[in-house]
Design a protein around this nucleic acid. Structure first.
Length: 549
RNA sequence: GCACCCGUAGCUCAACUGGAUAGAGCAUCAGACUUCGAAUCUGAGGGUUGGGGGUUCAAGUCCCUCCGGGUGUACCA
């Protein structure tokens, strides 16, 4: 419909010698203002030095939309042009929902664009903690949204199993191992204090006894065992949330393949790197940043910036033309350096989309749940899943805009009542399923789309509650596009809540199964449409849509 | 100090590239089940969008400034 109006109004504009560059349609906030509106007359009025309403008159006077689609065109307020759809068009388009079923909502504006979404990327030094949940879920949902809008998505996890943190992990496990042998052995100052370190150490002690007591300087075995354990733990947690990555990209491969040195040499050749105090510095000030940064430490080890730059360049070399990174706000400082570096290597960073989410705090009713990374008592993501369930983890972490601080209410997430927005949504789905089961018993062709389609007619579905529900359901594909375009999954949760609400309203106002068989069939079809949209939305969110609760 | 994010109803938050009367949920109050799931629905009250300036026909949204909160600001990742 938007495309139709875009074209029709666009033609009118050019016939009137107006520019149509700023022509947009949007859904008015207030239903009384019609189904779609445009502000084009007010924008044109300025350059034409005319009254906006007068410009709107000119446009509508020359506009003759198809009466089968558009019921009314009105000029309102300071010069908005409002369009109202015909009920016939609404009902006719709604048939698509039934025809497409589980594919309804999928569109292809991105046309197979090769897209890399990188997220989680936690190093294997411990289990995922509850705060990681936000980015785990955010990336999962964004990747789904991109896929539903035609991106060819590669889901990627970037990790480093070679740096200082890993050495520290090995040392920490070794220390716990010695303790378990009854030795008094100093625990590393910044060692990992978590209980899991003791578990790993205990497992090693059980297998090897004291045979590894004198491992000398090399704690490689301990490090390896730690890495295996941590990765297994992380992957298991992700699995519980249905999160899968296509590629695990090891930072180490950037060294072994010489990609790191290549970048250094290129920076040197471009005069963007210099030596000072035994370290190699990136001339970031040359790239418009505040200060120069070390890329190779005086010890000879690169800082994280260098591999990050090389890694991003590799993504482009691998053929991706959209690169999406998801970071927590605590990593925000690294981004400008990395982008500047990539740009200096000759790549367009406008195709790098960095999504930064703000921090999460957990509350249980009135109480704030304290969590400290350094302390031994870390609330893991696994424990959060145990506590509230995978569905609530999915829903609650994307419920709010990424760039605002998120308050995760554990008590609310557990609550099985109308207070919990997730339950409200799932209840709507279960309720529809229940009605459809009942309808099936009565002999309605619930599973037979071809048999239901003819009943979908505007002579039958004409109550306000029915038409409003239909219109809302028809917004679904565009809603997904706009969520994907803005990387804003939280808007999908709001939308789905509205769908559930519109359905409950319809259920309340209109009896589905009544005396009139053809009307009942039409309403069964409408139930099925609502169920389809809720189901598809839940699929994108990674939330289950239960048949019964 | 500097950079980024936030400040909207008692609480948690929406508001699509600036649009019309700033919206939901929870909480509070008042109502609705002999009928397909009351885990539902209907209604009411609740606001100077942190303060002040500016741009615009139009500002919660853009610009400047001040105040308050968060996250960073490493030869850690």
């Amino acid at each position: 419909m938007k495309q139709y109006l875009q074209k029709a109004v666009g033609e009118v504009l050019s016939s009137l010698h107006y520019s149509s560059g700023a022509l947009f349609f949007e859904k008015p906030k207030v239903a009384a203002h019609g189904d779609l509106t445009t502000n084009i007359a007010m924008l044109l009025a300025k350059e034409a030095k005319k009254n906006p309403r007068q410009v709107a008159q000119e446009i509508t006077g020359a506009l003759h939309p198809d009466p089968a689609l558009v019921a009314a065109v009105e000029i309102a307020g300071p010069g908005f042009i409002n369009f109202r759809f015909t009920p016939g068009w609404v009902v006719e388009s709604a048939k698509e929902i039934l025809r497409q079923g589980s594919a309804f909502g999928k569109t292809n504006p991105a046309n197979g664009r090769l897209t890399n979404v990188e997220w989680v990327s936690a190093n294997p030094t411990g289990p995922l903690h509850s705060g990681h949940g936000r980015q785990v879920i955010l990336g999962y949902t964004v990747a789904n949204l991109l896929e539903w809008t035609g991106h060819a998505v590669t889901r990627e996890y970037y990790f480093n199993n070679a740096g200082n943190q890993m050495l520290n992990l090995g040392e920490s496990i070794y220390a716990r191992y010695r303790e378990s042998l009854g030795d008094s052995y100093a625990f590393p100052e910044n060692g990992y204090a978590g209980e899991y370190i003791k578990d790993i150490a205990a497992a090693i002690a059980a297998e090897h006894g004291d045979a590894l007591r004198e491992s000398g300087e090399d704690k490689k075995y301990f490090r390896q065992r730690g890495e295996e354990w941590c990765f297994a733990s992380i992957k298991k947690t992700l699995e519980r949330l249905g999160v899968r990555h296509d590629v695990y990209y090891n930072e180490d491969s950037l060294y072994s393949s010489g990609k790191i040195n290549e970048v250094i040499e290129e920076f040197r050749a471009k005069g963007l790197a210099y030596d000072l105090d035994g370290a190699v510095w990136l001339k970031a000030t040359e790239l418009g940043l505040e200060q120069d940064r070390v890329i190779v430490k005086s010890t000879g080890e690169p800082t994280y910036r260098l591999p990050d730059i090389a890694y991003h360049r590799e993504k482009f070399r691998r053929g991706f033309d959209l690169v999406v990174d998801i970071f927590g706000a605590d990593h925000i400082a690294t981004i400008p350096d990395v982008l500047a570096g990539v740009r200096a290597l000759g790549y367009e960073t406008e195709n790098v989309k960095v999504i930064i989410h703000q921090m999460v705090s957990f509350v249980e009713g009135e109480e704030v749940v304290k969590m400290s990374k350094r302390s031994a008592k870390v609330y893991t993501l696994d424990e959060l899943i145990d506590e509230v369930g995978a569905d609530a983890v999915h829903y609650f972490f994307v419920m709010r805009s990424a760039n605002t601080h998120l308050e995760f209410d554990i008590e609310l997430a557990k609550e099985q009542s109308d207070k919990n927005p997730l339950y409200y949504l799932q209840y709507a789905h279960a309720r529809i399923a229940s009605i459809l089961r009942f309808a099936q018993e009565q002999g309605y062709p619930v599973d037979d789309v071809a048999a239901l389609l003819p009943s979908v007619a505007n002579a039958l579905l004409k109550e306000d509650a029915e038409v409003n529900l239909l219109k809302l359901l028809l917004d679904f594909p565009e809603m997904i596009q706009s969520c994907a375009f803005g990387y804003e999954p939280h808007r999908l949760t709001t939308y789905l809540r509205e769908v559930a609400e519109a359905f409950h309203r319809f259920y309340h106002d209109c009896r589905v199964l009544g005396e009139d068989k053809s009307l009942s069939t039409a309403r069964v079809a409408l139930c099925l449409m609502a169920k389809t949209v809720i189901f598809n939305g839940c699929t994108i969110l990674g939330v289950s849509a239960p048949e019964k609760m």
